[in-house]
Amino acid sequence: MRFHDSVCGAVLLALAVFIFTYALTIPPMPGQQYGADVFPRMVAIGLGAFSLMLVFRGWKYSAPGTPWVAIAPWMRDPRTRGNFILAFVLTIAYVLLDDIVGFIPLGIAILMVLFVRQKVEWRKGAVIAVAMVVMTQFLFGNLLRVPLPRGILTGFW
């Protein structure tokens, strides 16, 4: 998806306005004239100024006929669109489920889904997925003591 420059500019302008108004609510540093509110206001002004320039430039000088929203090729092709959404959804699923399900089952599932989707032969995919996840668990979880959640496998080792 590709938005028109003016649309991008407008979104960033809204962000700038938000930062500025938020900064007005920051209390000053006790006993000093310049506190935590000064810098956000400067950032908001800079962001706002350049987004105005982008809005103006897009509106005035964009090639005629540039649509407000152009659909990128990868969004039109159901396969690449699916790939994109899948990678995204799987990562979110990991964040939400890792404590309950645990790293090993979830990691294998994520790799398998992506492999199958990319038409990797499933037996080969399964071997690689299990090997990679077990290796990662061993390296990060056991050797480096990163507390990768064990989830449903809690108590097995």
Binding site: G107, L114, I128, T136, V146
Partner: peptide, 12 residues
């Protein structure tokens, strides 16, 4: 095969 593995490493 590589890309899903990279994703997994990024997560960890």
């Amino acid at each position: 095969i590589l890309m899903p593995i990279v994703l997994l490493f990024c997560i960890v």
